[in-house]
Design a protein around this nucleic acid. Structure first.
Lengths: 212, 212
DNA sequence: CTATTTATGTACCTTACGGTATAGTACAGA
DNA sequence: TCTGTACTATACCGTAAGGTACATAAATAG
């Protein structure tokens, strides 16, 4: 829980923070998630976190850095969750876990559709902000690679045909993932998203020569 | 070119507009496209169109209505272009035309990646604006239907197997479409987008039992 | 206890925002 | 030509934006 930048420094010098950085970042992320980057004001963030603006500025820099911190936080979370899903031995249980988690996340806490934080708050800024653009590309590449690896593992484990194309299979899942994100934010219902995910998994099953 | 609200009214009463509404809407759309809805100011729009703000307000209402007009404009354009692409007799030429047009659009005028106008400017607002959310859903549904119809037509024409599933095929193309949009805005290159589209079309070929 | 360091809370600054009042202008109709 | 009407241009309004100065509070180091 407690994080230290270097080894075992007893305690930082001055007055300690009255808040937990990760918790604050979660609130910040949720606010940006709803209203977008440009659509969120520092006053809103202040209200959402319960912190006064000088505390936010002191801890994170400016609005953009605060957003980038929230984005990193989100992306690290996604990577961790997907790594967990992909660690499930059975391929199709893996894919089910992945899509279940996505749909849960994309539906949002109170079942209003919110979609993927990155897709709908970072992308609008990506065309004018190279750092955000790069973060998005890295995240997309990372998901690509993780999925390809997962399919390769399934081939090695003999779960699917050795003739299956991991890249084609990954493409289907990735495209489906981003589509579900968009549909979620557009207000499609959870069963509709579930059906979409299931159809993609069914397609993967056919493509990979797995037993029906 | 000229549009009249009712039958053949000769000319509106007062001083005529000094600008072409569609042309202005194009500039407006391009500006929103780059900076997003919330990230675009009325002053930017005024500068981009060469119109003073009162003219914009007089012609379109407020910022939101101006955006909605630009969105409608864009969506109508997309529908028209896709209808044209789908009118091409050969299925795979149709799909190639569709993806070519998408990639051209999504790369933007000066080859900076911009992605789909709707996906990256409407979606962030969709979670708080029911009208925008509805427009997005309608547009997605419309593309779904158009693609399903296109595949049904190909089955009727004997271009692909009668056992092919139009819904599954449409899903592949739609998901690919949205993915390309995201990748474009994230800065992926034109060849990368092209490769992605080609892979989807190749998958459709396999799935539809068409001759290799 | 004192000095130093860092966070908090209030109040505020500057700028940019969405939107408009108003005076002038170009057209149609009478 | 006169009148009504709709658009243009300038200048402006109130507010909300991102960000900060400053006094105060809570911790450590000596």
């Amino acid at each position: 829980m407690v994080q230290k930048t270097s080894a075992a420094r007893s305690a930082p010098r001055g007055r300690p923070r009255s808040f937990d950085t990760d918790e604050v970042l979660d609130r910040v992320r949720d606010t940006f998630w709803r209203y977008g980057y440009a659509g969120t004001s520092m006053d809103q963030l202040s209200a959402a976190t319960g912190l006064h603006k000088p505390s936010l500025y002191g801890a994170f820099g400016d609005k953009r850095k605060l957003y980038l911190a929230a984005l990193d936080n989100y992306l690290a979370d996604v990577r961790a969750e997907f790594a967990e899903a992909f660690a499930v031995p059975d391929l199709f249980e893996s894919l089910a876990a992945m899509t279940e988690w996505s749909i849960d996340k994309f539906m949002g806490k109170d079942e209003t559709g919110t979609g993927c934080f990155m897709m709908h708050t970072a992308m609008p800024e990506a065309s004018e902000d190279p750092e955000i653009s790069r973060a998005v590309r890295e995240s997309m590449d990372s998901l690509d690679r993780a999925l390809v690896r997962r399919f390769e593992k399934a081939i090695e484990a003999g779960q699917i045909s050795a003739a299956a194309d991991p890249h084609a299979l990954a493409m289907v899942m990735v495209a489906n993932h981003y589509e579900i994100s968009g549909r979620a934010r557009a207000g499609y219902s959870r069963p509709e998203l579930r059906a979409l995910a299931d159809r993609a998994i069914a397609l993967v099953k056919v493509m990979s020569g797995a037993p029906a």
